[in-house]
Design a protein around this nucleic acid. Structure first.
Length: 562
RNA sequence: UGGCGAGUGGUGUAGUGGUAGCACAGAGGACUUUGAAUCCUUUAGCCCAGGUUCGAAUCCCGGCUCGCCAGCCA
């Protein structure tokens, strides 16, 4: 990733790393990893977790591995491997060749397990799953020792080999570490290391019928890869003693696990358990629906990797689980989009505007600035004629207080074109306004009055006969409640789904320069917001997603007036 | 009612024994050919109670609140 914007990062993890560099614990090396299980798509929370690990290694010149923690073949799929790699690359991380699979270490893990058995620190248990669960005890009661706990090393070795060789049915035996059935930390009550599970593995096929458990496998994977700092979320804090125990028992390279808080966003939920049903029920249009917090959803929505990076690095790292105000994410988005998005004029809800004193067949072209934040973006020509479209919201027959836009008798500026003065309206039989009529002042060509008079408002417009039609999809938060998971008695999170999270507007009028817009293209529709071209667009129909609106002071005033 | 962790403005974070700072959000204003952007001003905070100290957000002690943990999931 480019780090032109990188500022000095300070957090408790970097404090630890800095201290350990001074004490030379790892010879100055800072290597990290991001270890997803390929059983789902990455979301905004993962983007932050990836940033925490990868940016740290990058700062210290270490490597950052992507390692698929593929120890449970029942839930894992190749499509997720592919999607995860795509998402991480999209975020801007250079993975180089450093993409690994836990399953590549299965043989080595097996050898390590044999070592533990030989040291008398692991045993094969023939108990059923229920027995093991029951004998584990609970928070206040110690567990009971398994009747198989004192088997001889020879018997354990033999049984474990035969587990691997497929002599026993699924679930009939497990390999467990011999630690302490009375430990207050449940993870230390003789945790399982291997289970028998016949399933075709996405990466190693049918080679194995025993699969390692997370706690056993994870430290080994880190150790084998030379990861120095194994960063994970808070819920693994209780697992660290076990992580350490395995590595110490084996006497192999021992990385440092450090846990950080999970990050959530207001008006959002990232859990598969919640999002899955919404996808299945068609509440959203798939995992990459622009309302989804998945990286594929954010990408389709128009989020940029740079905006996400800004969000990750400026939202802090701590040991508390937090819910970050989604306003902050959106602020980061606007920050980036403002700098990069070309400006363009689009009328979402058209209202016909006729300039009565403008010559019938005349067409003029005005120069429009592509991006005031970036002079290098240049200018473009925008055609102007007698009949235009303006935004319905930009005209009020009876203007409310503080309304600056067009109203009968009022003069406003049409951006880059002329000052116009409203002379009247035409209505249909239902009394709805169908046309607004006005006159223009030829002396204000380009948008400046030679006599220095001012107008209160500048409005966007599109020439009717040059307009291209497009659909616009306007998005809002998926949920109406800050924390949708904080449900009231008898309710559930579905009660907080936002019924207005998607609004589709047909037949918007866009300026002709947009005719050649390509999927993924990002624009600022002046005065409206940032939009991107959706992949649903075709040669004869443009579809735009509203990525995020512009900050809207007028909307705020209107709210106050209510 | 066991273990582990966390509590600083509304939100997120800095501060590690010496004037509680930053960002977002909120409020007000300047500027403006986007009611955008930009700029300025401003509201608002150390979970509670003891103790140590000249001095405590920081150290000690007790309490409270929140989160996580009893998968052959990760």
């Amino acid at each position: 990733m480019d780090d032109t914007s990188a500022k000095k990062q300070e957090d408790f993890i970097r404090d630890i790393v800095r201290q350990e560099i001074e004490t030379n614990r790892f010879g100055g090396k800072v290597n990290t990893r991001f270890p997803p299980e390929p059983n789902g798509l990455l979301h905004i929370g993962h983007a932050k977790a990836i940033w925490i690990s990868f940016a740290l290694a990058e700062e210290y010149g270490g490597y950052h591995n992507l390692r698929f923690d593929d120890t449970n073949p029942l839930t894992e799929k190749q499509e997720f491997v592919d999607a995860i790699i795509k998402d991480i690359r999209w975020l801007g991380w250079d993975l180089k060749e450093r993409i690994f699979f836990a399953s590549d270490y299965f043989e080595q893990m097996y050898e390590y397990a044999v070592q533990l058995i030989k040291k008398g620190k692991a045993y094969v248990d023939d108990s059923t799953a229920e027995e093991i669960s029951k004998n584990r005890g609970n928070f206040t009661t110690p567990g009971k020792l398994s009747p198989y706990r004192e088997r001889s090393v020879e018997e354990n070795l033999d049984l474990f080999k035969r587990m691997r060789d497929g002599e026993f049915p699924d679930g009939s035996r497990v390999l467990r570490a011999k630690i302490d059935m009375a430990a207050s930390n449940m993870n230390m009550r003789d945790p399982l290391m291997y289970r028998i599970q016949r399933a075709t593995h996405l990466h190693v096929g049918d080679k194995w019928c025993i699969y390692p458990m997370y706690d056993w496998a994870h430290g080994l994977e880190d150790s084998i890869e030379g990861v120095t700092y194994s960063l994970c979320s808070l819920e693994f804090k209780d697992h660290r003693p076990l992580y350490d125990w395995f590595l110490d028992a084996l006497g192999i390279f021992h990385p440092q696990q450090i846990e950080f808080g999970r990050y959530s966003l207001t008006y959002t939920v990232v859990s598969k358990r919640v999002l899955g049903p919404l996808v299945d029920a068609g509440v959203v249009n798939g995992w990459d629906d622009p309302r989804m917090p998945t990286l594929s959803g954010l990408r389709r929505r128009g989020y940029t990797p740079e905006a996400l990076k800004l969000y990750c690095e400026s939202s802090g790292v701590s040991e508390a689980n937090t819910i970050i105000d989604i306003n902050f994410l959106e602020h980061c988005l606007r920050e980036d989009l403002n700098k990069r998005a070309p400006r363009v004029m689009v009328v979402l809800r058209p209202l016909k505007l006729v300039i009565d004193n403008y010559p019938e067949d005349q067409v003029e072209e005005f120069n429009a600035v592509n991006n005031p934040e970036d002079p290098a973006a240049g200018t473009r020509k925008v055609p102007f004629s007698k009949v235009l479209y303006i935004e319905q919201e930009d005209f009020q027959e009876v203007p409310p207080p503080k309304y600056y836009r067009l109203a009968p008798g009022r003069e406003v500026r049409l951006r880059y074109a002329y000052f116009i003065t409203c002379t009247g309206v035409k209505k249909n039989e239902k009394g709805e306004i169908t046309e607004v009529h006005c006159t223009y002042d030829p002396a204000t060509k380009g948008g400046d009055a030679p006599d220095g008079r001012k107008v209160q408002s500048t409005m966007h417009w599109v020439s009717a006969k040059h307009a291209v039609e497009a659909d616009a999809r306007l998005y809002d938060h998926l949920f109406t409640k800050e924390n949708p998971m904080d449900v009231e008695e008898g309710g559930d999170y579905k009660d907080y789904l936002n019924p207005h999270s998607l609004e589709v507007i047909k037949s918007c009028k866009v300026e002709p320069s947009l005719a050649k817009a390509q999927p993924g293209g990002l624009y600022q529709f002046e005065r409206l917001g940032y939009f991107c071209v959706d992949p649903d667009s075709s040669a004869n129909k443009l579809v735009f997603n509203r990525t995020i609106s512009l900050r809207d002071t007028w909307a705020k005033i209107q709210k106050q007036q209510k």
